[in-house]
Amino acid sequence: MTSETKEPQVQETPTAEQPTNSGLAYRPNVDILESENELTLVMDVPGVERDSLDIDFAEGVLTVQARVAPRYAANQRFLLREYGIGSFYRSFQVGEQIDVDGISAEYADGVLRIHLPKAEAAKPRKIAVKVAS
């Protein structure tokens, strides 16, 4: 076991639920992965159209907002209702140094993937050992 405790690279901002323009929003489930070159956030935002996604990165805080268009009439009666529909909101404090210009995102099938490439300074570096001549 290593004695080094590594700080988490990405932390939830203290206020987990934040009001959006139109009231409270749902907190989407997220996977956060780290590879040598980037951090990747994978987020479930079913029912969201690509144009309704709003991703923002400022001062180390990544914020995702997604509007969900209503799919039923306001007075719809249900035989079974196990989930609600509304907008999504979640934000994270990113500790790692990020190459802000290199941030990219893709969206398909209700899943949003955000790629946060590490800044050069934060990448692990292999030092080649030259043979002394």
């Binding site: 988490p8 690279q9 990405v10 489930n29 997220v30 996977d31 956060i32 992965l33 780290e34 590879s35 040598e36 951090l39 990747t40 994978v42 479930d44």
Partner: peptide, 9 residues
């Protein structure tokens, strides 16, 4: 070479 920091899905 991918590590999970968080896995909710």
């Amino acid at each position: 070479g991918v590590a999970f920091h968080r896995q909710e899905r």
